[in-house]
């Protein structure tokens, strides 16, 4: 759908699994990771990832830390932060480190998809 893969990163396995199934059903090429470290490994092995949906609060390497790594190693990959709580400060901090935007759980799949499309067309808009 985006001309590349979408990586969903969250330590809540049931959430990741279900969301990925729903996105696949919507013709999105999805891969998943259950931690920040796993996400970085996946990015190494999957060069065609174009978009990452990243949970903020995860055990070990948290979302912000993972985002910093992603943005330093793959600056072209867009990241949308996903948070279980409405800590605007953390979300805004994510945007400061290069995230495209943030969404709050629970979020409608269509809203999620719309945000993903928005992120993918960002460059076109700025052209």
């Amino acid at each position: 759908m985006f001309g590349g893969k979408l990586l969903i990163v969250d330590d809540e396995a049931p959430f990741v699994d279900t969301v990925s199934k729903r996105l696949i059903k919507r013709q999105v090429n999805v891969i998943i990771a259950y931690s920040g470290q796993e996400a970085l490994n996946k990015l190494k092995s999957e060069p065609d990832v174009v978009l990452v949906i990243l949970d903020v609060k995860m055990p070990g390497m948290d979302g912000i830390e993972t985002l910093k790594h992603i943005k330093s190693q793959y600056p072209l990959i867009e990241v949308i932060m996903l948070t279980g709580h409405a800590n605007v400060e953390t979300a805004v901090e994510g945007i400061k480190y290069g995230a495209f935007d943030y969404l709050m759980k629970p979020c409608d799949i269509d809203v999620l998809l719309a945000k993903c499309e928005e992120a993918m067309t960002k460059d076109l808009k700025t052209l």
Binding site: P14, F15, T18, R22, K25, G84, H85, K105, P106, D108
Partner: peptide, 24 residues
Amino acid sequence: AAGIAHEINNPVAIMVEEAGWIGD
């Protein structure tokens, strides 16, 4: 409050997604 929000929103998100999946 942030902790409670996180702890509630995550399972709720899973429930909503599961319901969404059933809907799909």
